[in-house]
Design a protein around this nucleic acid. Structure first.
Length: 218
DNA sequence: CTGCCTTTGAAGAGT
DNA sequence: ACTCTTCAAAGGCAG
């Protein structure tokens, strides 16, 4: 782990995204200043260290501690079953907060002796808000460069590629949560009787056509 | 084994 | 134009 966004390796990865690396030491430092692939990637038969498989995830750690090797943390998503000849999944670039989380997670784990990510993320969320504007700006800038590089590596990629219509896992979730115009997770997906504001909403806004849903809770 | 939890932000989808 | 939804990461936990 200790990695960074999981970008599949393409020939475009050979191009240096940035000529210089003002952010070396940051999560962005995985991108080699020289644009050359690290040693572990030089062999065509070796999978990338950051190769993972969707459910169950699998990351291979082949790199011999790169010490900030640029693309050492790239991760390529492949599929565990060879018969599943699906194309590699390109993940979204990390946003500022995600980059902050990656950097600070270990610190919080050590300070708080916590391991559960849900709890850790709550703490990280508070710390993010407590951060100076200038400190946050640092991560926004890193995220901007992440996005920039991602666009260079995968010009045709769209976040929609990983959306539910293309995502088996999410399709499953949608199926479980129920069909219809109501999006899963939405307050609209809640039965009116379950809505904590049911009484107030019914009085103020009424119910929908089916007399089931609480409109204002959207 | 699989999905949930929990956070923020980016971006696609929908209205 | 605006709101809503999904997905990025992480790892323990529940079913």
């Amino acid at each position: 782990r200790n990695g960074a966004p999981s970008y599949p390796i393409t020939s475009a990865a050979l191009r240096p995204p940035y000529s210089t690396s003002p952010l070396s030491g940051s999560p962005l430092s995985r991108f080699s200043p020289t644009g050359l692939l690290p040693h572990h990637m030089s062999h065509p038969c070796l999978p990338h260290p950051a190769i993972v498989t969707p459910g169950p995830k699998q990351e291979l750690s082949l790199h011999a501690g790169g010490g900030g090797g640029a693309s050492e943390n790239h991760r390529l998503v492949i599929f565990s079953h060879p018969e599943q000849k699906r194309p590699p999944k390109i993940k979204k670039p990390l946003n500022a907060f995600m980059l902050f989380m990656k950097e600070m997670r270990q610190t919080v784990i050590e300070e708080c002796t916590l391991k559960e990510s849900a709890a850790i993320n709550q703490i990280l969320g508070r710390r993010w808000h407590a951060l100076d504007r200038s400190e946050q700006a640092k991560y926004y800038e890193m995220a901007r460069k992440e996005k920039e590089l991602h666009m260079q590596l995968y010009p045709g990629w769209s976040a929609r590629d990983n959306y539910a219509t293309h995502n088996k896992k999410a399709l499953k979730k949608r199926k479980r949560d129920g069909p219809g115009p109501v999006q899963p997770g939405s307050m609209m997906s809640m039965h009116h009787g379950d809505c904590p504001n049911a009484k107030k909403c019914r009085a103020r806004f009424g119910l929908d056509a089916q007399n089931q849903w609480c409109k204002p809770c959207r």
